[in-house]
Amino acid sequence: MDDPDSELLDAAGVAERTALAWQRTIIGVLAVGALVVRWSIVERFPAWPGVVLTAAAALATLVLVRQRYRRVRDTVMAGQTPLSRYVVPGATALMVVIVVGVGAGILLEYAS
């Protein structure tokens, strides 16, 4: 009989779940960007803040999800932990900067 823990450490399964979690997060950011664009059009503000947010999320989808999938799969296959010291904090910092930038842009447009 196989070890029950071996099913939990299936490298492709772990990588797939991680990629799906990243995709869900980015889809949420895309939805928020679309709502910002819609709100900008209705309120007659420039649409660039929402476009920037949406473009950044789309770029993150193309780059980060594939890179993270490969890294998780390779590290699990090597018997190591797939935790990253740089990708998650870096992506979080990037999203915070983008959200603050978009918020500042909206605030400037709303104030004038």
Rank of each mutant, 00 (worst) to 15 (best):
Gly101Pro: 05
Arg66Ala: 13
Met77Lys: 08
Ala21Gln: 07
Val14Trp: 01
Pro89Arg: 06
Asp10Trp: 04
Gly101Cys: 07
Tyr110Ala: 14
Ala12Tyr: 05
Pro46Met: 07
Ala15Glu: 01
Trp22Ala: 12
Gln23Ile: 13
Gly50Ser: 04
Leu53Phe: 04
Thr61Trp: 14
Val72Ile: 05
Asp74His: 07
Thr25Tyr: 08
Ala58Cys: 15
Val32Gln: 01
Leu8Val: 05
Glu16Arg: 15
Ala47Met: 10
Ile98Asn: 02
Val37Leu: 08
Tyr69Asp: 00
Ala93Gly: 08
Gln80His: 12
Val96Ile: 14
Asp2Ile: 12
Thr81Gln: 13
Ala104His: 09
Trp22Met: 15
Arg73Trp: 08
Ile27Leu: 14
Gln23Asp: 08
Leu30Ile: 14
Ala60Trp: 05
Thr18Glu: 13
Ala78Lys: 06
Ser84Glu: 02
Ile98Met: 15
Gly105Ser: 10
Arg70Ala: 14
Gln23Tyr: 07
Phe45Ala: 05
Ala56Leu: 11
Val100Leu: 15
Tyr110Arg: 13
Val65Ser: 06
Arg44Ile: 03
Tyr69Cys: 00
Ala21Lys: 05
Val87Gly: 02
Ala15Asp: 02
Val14Gln: 03
Ser6Met: 09
Trp22Glu: 12
Ala104Ile: 07
Arg24Asp: 05
Ala12Leu: 08
Tyr86Ala: 15
Leu35Trp: 07
Thr54Tyr: 04
Thr61Gln: 10
Glu7Trp: 14
Arg44Cys: 01
Val51Glu: 05
Ala111Ser: 10
Ala19Tyr: 00
Val36Cys: 01
Thr81Ile: 07
Val87Met: 06
Ala104Phe: 11
Gly33Val: 00
Leu62Ser: 06
Leu62Trp: 13
Tyr69Gly: 01
Val37Arg: 02
Gln67Gly: 03
Glu7Tyr: 14
Gly90Pro: 00
Arg66Asn: 12
Ser84Gly: 06
Thr25Met: 12
Ala58Met: 09
Ala21Glu: 06
Val52Trp: 03
Val42Pro: 01
Leu64Ser: 06
Val102Tyr: 01
Arg66Leu: 07
Glu43His: 14
Leu64Thr: 07
Ala21Met: 15
Leu108Asn: 06
Ala78Gly: 05
Ala78Asp: 12
Ala104Gln: 11
Val32Ala: 14
Ile106Phe: 11
Pro49Leu: 06
Glu16His: 11
Gly13Met: 02
Ala93Trp: 09
Arg73Ser: 02
Leu30Ala: 10
Leu59Met: 13
Arg68Glu: 10
Ile106Ala: 04
Ala91Pro: 03
Ile106Pro: 01
Met77Asn: 12
Met77Ala: 15
Gly33Tyr: 02
Val29Ile: 14
Arg38Val: 13
Leu107His: 12
Asp2Leu: 12
Ala91Asn: 04
Gly28Ser: 05
Leu8Asp: 10
Leu83Pro: 00
Glu7Ala: 14
Phe45Tyr: 15
Ile27Gly: 04
Ala11Trp: 02
Ala78Glu: 10
Gly79Pro: 06
Ala57Gln: 03
Tyr110Phe: 08
Leu83Phe: 09
Gln80Ser: 08
Leu20Arg: 15
Val76Trp: 00
Ala47Ser: 12
Ala56Trp: 03
